[in-house]
Design a protein around this nucleic acid. Structure first.
Lengths: 341, 341
DNA sequence: CTGAAAGCGCTAACAT
DNA sequence: ATGTTAGCGCTTTCAG
């Protein structure tokens, strides 16, 4: 029988039964044993176990304004990248004795605001936000007036927030160096048409830089949404014919775009890498056996990003002085497979 | 400026400024306008907007023992099946004005207990549990003494819990009927060696039943863990040679096992479906273009399971009388592709 | 070493 | 139609 505090035992019941005051119980619960007699201590412990007493966190929180809750806002939790991020966040928070309040914003700016405000009403102690990108001012106000915020994965172009993300510049330069060495003289950048997502922007800008510095070509960029199957096929065809005679590769900015383009390639009956090669951001287990010998892809440190986000929040919660915001870039890994042979 | 309740405005401040009592403010906040003058009402509204007042949910919760929080325990949130489930749960809870406290149990029985107890301390109003399977007694105690529980996806063999899951019996019978009609006389059941997970057990039992009633063969069952690459290859080879001369198909009990076996098939250089066919539970986008023409797979209603779980909880929270526990089985869909041609 | 009492912000029974 | 008052369960001065 693990459970039996049916009667809603409170600190007062424990105090009465132990023959001490509520204060002493409170001290016991908070580990303030310095000036407590050993008798009291062991007596209290006995009674607590006997009554199966567990303190009401709501009451504690109300009194202390410390809820031991972290608010987590995720743009799309069904995306494995983000669910692993949440796993990292959740596991680490739990280790610190915190719980996470998770909400799915579905990339909607208004929902992001609404949920954040509502979580503040619950007195969360901090936020980890995978932001939609349109709430920079709002987030700054929250951070200024309430609790710390760490941005997960998606930066905003303002250095006032702690940000934890993958090192996308490095990753992009690395993969393009690799592609160039393999003889791919034409690299097309394929991404989702989502405005304002810092991650995409950084990958795209680094791609452009790499086009100039490494490949010495004009960038070839395509924006295609997840549901736009026809457009994806048109773009694939266009990219292939436009670069006739060159070794060419489709470079996708994220896992969803990879899926979109793989579908198109499959539908068009193109061979990888003979007709067109492919590679991109986000590495998933199934990529090992798609095509004749797998898809070249960049592993992102999703779990570790989650862990670091929590570490930053905890740092700020413990800090007594202001801490300067930093951007933490975690290393990625390039997995080379047959799709870029 | 959306935010500016820096000074922690309380109901008392609003009352003072509006020239009424705290009670009236409280009534206003709770929509008890029946006996309130229109002057008071509009005056209060003004002041609330002016001061940007938002009620402290912690205080409300302490008073009412209603936290507007639902606890969600997930065995492995990095698994897309579960992350979509969480999405369904989270979206639906938010629609009802609830937030979700999410914890990842990593299939650990002790963690499941620990997090549940801790969430009770936070006064969550209900639980949605994707249980490890070893906490039946514990969960029953929680439900008896505290708050409603709904089991998501994984049933336990006890009819005392509300359970929401996919209709695995139907799905299994359907796919085996389909396979039999296609001429597959040998079907092997491949699953993870996890004990006590109701979902696996049901799929396996139905498979056995189908072996008897439809295929009229002895069941051929293999248990292989996600990391056991060699074992997977051994089993694949064994299954193929054992059923030499028959049309045979590997039937995987979940997405992870599908990945494990695809890897093995790929490593062994087996052709699908010529050397061995494959199909299984869980349908993902990438399955459309693995192999020459996709993988046959069963779509599971993950999101809808999440939605229904919340509906059940809400039903219980609103109910005044005891509600009889039910098991809700949601329909699946068979996606036929080239791997079972 | 311990306790009395005040109060966190809100709600609700009981007045009026 | 509105206010007074007493808590919800805990923490924390302040006083012994």
């Amino acid at each position: 029988m693990v459970v039996k505090n049916k009667a809603n035992i409170t600190i007062a019941d424990v105090a009465k039964k132990a023959g001490v005051s509520k204060t002493t119980i409170s001290r016991y619960l908070n580990g303030k044993f310095e000036f407590m007699s050993d008798e009291s201590k062991s007596r209290i412990q006995e009674v607590i176990e006997e009554l199966n007493f567990r303190p009401n966190k709501l009451a504690r929180s109300l009194k202390s304004s410390k809820s031991r809750l972290i608010g987590v806002l995720i743009s799309d939790i069904s995306n494995p990248f983000f669910s692993i991020l949440v796993q990292g966040i959740s596991d680490t928070c739990n280790q610190h004795g915190y719980h996470v309040l998770v909400a799915n914003t579905n990339n909607a700016t208004a929902k992001e605001q609404e949920y954040i405000l509502s979580m503040i009403d619950q007195r969360v102690e901090g936020f980890i936000v995978n932001t939609t990108g349109f709430n920079t001012e709002f987030l700054r106000e929250i951070e200024d007036n309430y609790v710390p915020i760490v941005l997960a994965d998606r930066p905003v172009f303002s250095d006032t927030f702690d940000t934890v993300k993958s090192d996308d510049q490095q990753a992009t330069m690395d993969i393009i160096h690799y592609l160039a060495a393999k003889g791919f003289s034409r690299v097309g950048f394929f991404s989702e048409p989502i405005l304002n997502v810092g991650t995409r922007i950084i990958r795209q800008q680094t791609y452009r830089q790499a086009c100039k510095e490494i490949l010495r070509i004009e960038p070839q960029e395509y924006e295609v949404g997840v549901k736009e199957k026809e457009k994806a096929q048109r773009f694939a065809r266009e990219f292939v014919s436009r670069n006739e005679g060159y070794k060419k590769v489709i470079f996708t900015a994220n896992g969803l775009t990879m899926l979109t383009m793989l579908e198109a390639i499959h539908a068009l009956g193109l061979r990888m890498p003979e007709d067109v090669a492919i590679c991109g951001f986000e590495n998933w287990p199934w990529m090992e056996f798609v095509g004749s010998s797998g898809i070249t892809a960049i592993s992102l440190p999703s779990y570790e990003i989650g862990v670091e986000c929590v570490n930053r929040i905890m740092l700020r919660l413990e800090a007594t002085t202001k801490i300067k915001p930093v951007t933490i870039k975690l290393p990625t890994k390039l997995n080379i497979r047959g799709s870029t042979e």
